[in-house]
């Protein structure tokens, strides 16, 4: 299934307030900041958007408690050996079991707990071109272009979907 169709399909199942976006990454490492930048852009239209610095634990644990159905989408820079800028949707089973985590809760644990509570969750990964942390780190052109494309697809799907109608001010 095409990326666009996949998202359209998912969004049709949920009301807007049942969908949560969490952007992960480090903006000081160039393309690693793509998840954070995505949230910065979508926040204006979408209240349930958080970066990993916005009490992520609380957001996820609250979503777990909610009786409504829920969809949580993580957006992150991911090295899946694709071409730079390539976007891929990854399910829980496709994420490597990460036993080497330190004191940060791995997103796979959150995904597992959400699935246990009958919620849906995916990781939208974007292949980085550079993780440079010096010389004024910023998104590479190719990742920036992909981000714009992703942002457009998500916004279009939410806006075009009657269930997920974005409220106008």
């Amino acid at each position: 299934m095409k990326f666009n169709d996949f998202l359209k399909n998912i969004f049709q199942k949920y009301k807007k307030d049942e969908i949560t976006f969490i952007g992960l990454g480090n903006p000081y490492r160039s393309d690693d900041g793509v998840g954070i930048e995505f949230i910065n852009r979508i926040r204006e239209d979408f209240n349930n958007s958080y970066t990993e610095f916005d009490n992520m634990d609380e957001v996820i644990l609250n979503l777990m408690k909610s009786k409504n159905p829920g969809l949580l989408l993580f957006i992150d820079c991911s090295d899946f050996k694709g071409t730079p800028g390539e976007i891929r949707i990854t399910t829980y089973d496709e994420i490597e079991d990460y036993g080497k985590h330190f004191h940060k809760i791995p997103i796979k644990l959150y995904m597992k707990l959400l699935i246990k509570e009958n919620k849906q969750t995916f990781l939208i990964g974007i292949q980085p071109e550079t993780l440079d942390s010096i010389n004024e780190p910023k998104l590479s052109d190719v990742v920036s272009k992909s981000l714009t494309q992703l942002f457009g697809i998500i916004k279009d799907n939410i806006v075009s979907n009657s269930t997920c109608q974005v409220e106008k001010p």
């Binding site: 990460y98 809760i105 644990l109 597992k112």
Partner: peptide, 23 residues
């Protein structure tokens, strides 16, 4: 278990409450 993720299958309630405590 190899890690906490694998523990969730049987101990989801304990893991969730522990995460709440951490929070």
């Amino acid at each position: 278990y190899p890690n906490v993720i694998a523990m969730v299958e049987k101990y989801a309630d304990v893991v969730t409450k522990a995460l709440n405590l951490k929070k």
